[in-house]
Design a protein around this nucleic acid. Sequence first.
DNA 1: CAGTGGTCTAGACCACTTC
DNA 2: AAGTGGTCTAGACCACTGC
Lengths: 244, 244
Amino acid sequence: MRSVEQSASFSPLYQQIKELLLESLQAGEWQPGQPIPSEMDLAERYKVSQGTVRKAIDALAAENVVVRHQGKGTFVASHREDAVQFRFLRLAPDDGKELILKSTFLSCESRQADAHIAALLEQKPSDPVIEVKRIQRFGGQPTVFETIYLVSKRFEGISLERLSAWHGPLYGFYESEFNTHMVWAEEQIKAVNASAELANHLNLAPSAALLSVERRSFTYGNKPVEVRMAYYETTKLHYVNELS
Amino acid sequence: MRSVEQSASFSPLYQQIKELLLESLQAGEWQPGQPIPSEMDLAERYKVSQGTVRKAIDALAAENVVVRHQGKGTFVASHREDAVQFRFLRLAPDDGKELILKSTFLSCESRQADAHIAALLEQKPSDPVIEVKRIQRFGGQPTVFETIYLVSKRFEGISLERLSAWHGPLYGFYESEFNTHMVWAEEQIKAVNASAELANHLNLAPSAALLSVERRSFTYGNKPVEVRMAYYETTKLHYVNELS
DNA sequence: CAGTGGTCTAGACCACTTC
DNA sequence: AAGTGGTCTAGACCACTGC
């Protein structure tokens, strides 16, 4: 009864449906925040049972690609929604209060990527990348200094003005203005002593300990599109992680 | 047809089955590394369909409480298996090679918990706790200094000799010797400057930057049983995290 | 009330492991 | 060949949302 033939490496039907759904998402057929068709409609479209579509969507929901709402529908995940923020911003104040960061963008320039950044973004070393720098303040204190590298092709037209005019999480900005939704990211964390430049930016004694967080973010299809080199001043904040 | 009546706050059958399975695990009915009964047997036991048992086990597998092996059975998760190591040890060498740490235990004493530790372990401030200190070396260099606090009741008879005689991950030791399996943990990470004592232990210049990792680990039933205060020297290693 | 996702069942068949 | 988990189907019914 299965409508797709089996190959040497067996892939269950619901996996294939999942891939088809991902392709539609990648192609922009359904936009972040908007509903995808109902399970019944998709079952009809792909000529499989509702249960099989359900399993495909379950897998996408487990990966936070899609969000289910009983009685309403299934929606494409969006960074413009509050609940999603803390998946990518793993900082919390030590006193348990709410985290409020205030962003100031310092620069936004196109430059040739160095070999390391180019490799991380899967670009040719000669390709240009966009470099953005910003500071975030917590309770008035400069607390986070970030250098952000973006794949040029995807973010054409980005500027210091547009960044500064945006209020809200950066990933919401990418989504609204550049049609780019981040699906997941990997981080490498170290403790480092502040350089003279960093100490200056963050108003610290030189050699103060800072948390160094290198993040690489991926959009649909596991394409890396952003690399961040961040430094967190962690006397009043901490990075939170759950091992499960 | 459902064999359990509904209450004010609706809980689906498979959730209830999941809770029953967790109770059996907590009671030690099935031991880590050993198989639980087949889905058919469990369906018979709880008088539900195989599909419902399946959904309960799916949930437990998603939480890493249990591991499925097609054709063989479903097994209680164990820290004595290689694959599980990296869920709780999130360190990786910068050069991409394999991580090999060599443990040396420094002390193991019973002492009265201070208020903070007692609260984290959900003990009364007057209750005793066990305090263990150890150093881990990476490529000969002292790299990790840890102070570990354990709930006394669960770890009666622990000693420096027994700790030193064990080879392998500590969580495997807890499992084998004290019948205690860790299910999940939460970590709070900061960057700090090394104290004189730490600099001495880790053979560093004073005020070197160290990664401070405070971990609280939980066994079945979300009972906290271990707190760790660890310091990582991160010039050749980094902490890895995936945001998904 | 209709439409959505969520649960539960029963049965058939597939893939993998072990004997 | 027998037993395990894994897939797929079809149908019934439940819970939640919005008109």
